[in-house]
Amino acid sequence: MWEFIARSLEASTIFTLAALGELLGQRSGILNVGIEGIMLFGATFGFIAAQNSDSYAVGFLVAIAIGALLGSLHGFFSITLGVDQVVSGMGIWILGFGLTTFIGNPYTGPLGMDRIPTVFGVSPFFILSVILVAVMWFVLSKTSLGLRIRSVGENPSVAEVSGINVARTRYMCVVVGGMLMGFAGAVYSLDYNPVWNYNFLMGWGFIALALVFFSLWNPWILLGGSLLFGFLWQLSLNPQLFLPGVFSRYIWRTVPFVITLLVLMVMSTKWFRAKWGSAKPEALGEPYVKG
């Protein structure tokens, strides 16, 4: 049982880190639907680097670096070139999906390193993710930088005339966001399930994307959502722990996805919106042209 909870927390860590990266970008007005692609990149390159160097540190650093690189690629397309953010994000996802399948294939199989030690039975990354949520909340709501980020996401032209460099702020957010997504991928492939396989994520990134919508762009709600989905995901993998013999295991695998849809629906009802208002950054997804 404790094992199950620890695994759930670890799964939620991956959701939290990736969704936190997405949340930061969205707060600055940049939608990145390529989150799963960046995670695949981080996971695959982190895996390869760790295996070749026999060092977890190298693996994570490489994953974070590749995340930053892809984040800046998304920035280049959507901020500098003004390409539709959805198109660019889809491009990054398909690039990640296609290229990692090819590049990672020779590494198919287990990582073959000692497991990362736990702290009181919990993954250290879980603790880190909670700290990062707190940091993100503090930065966004209590600091001048956070005010700038939120302004850029709400109304970039106002931010610009107030003396804020919109492009730079947005770049910073998508790059840091990309780092978090790359890191999340590496937590998957180096810690949670250290085996490389073709397209192993199977939707983690898209659930993380949905989690950002659930969170009303609030890091604490996001953490709550991640915990719930970490649990659900783990349950879908091990239904026999709670409900042995009910449904096929394949049906259980659909559960996190079905619940994602249901939550999205509840959140979009008039009742919910009247109660919680719309927290969506006003300029989300809109390219900004200076002047």
């Binding site: 690629l73 397309f77 070139l81 003004g82 390409v83 539709d84 198109v87 660019s88 889809m90 491009g91 990054i92 398909i94 690039l95 990640g96 999906f97 296609g98 290229l99 399948t101 090819f102 590049i103």
Partner: peptide, 16 residues
């Protein structure tokens, strides 16, 4: 798969 990815990302750049 790799071809799929490279085609897609190039196409994105050309949207400009």
């Amino acid at each position: 798969y790799a071809l799929l990815g490279v085609l897609m990302i190039t196409l994105v750049g050309f949207q400009y």
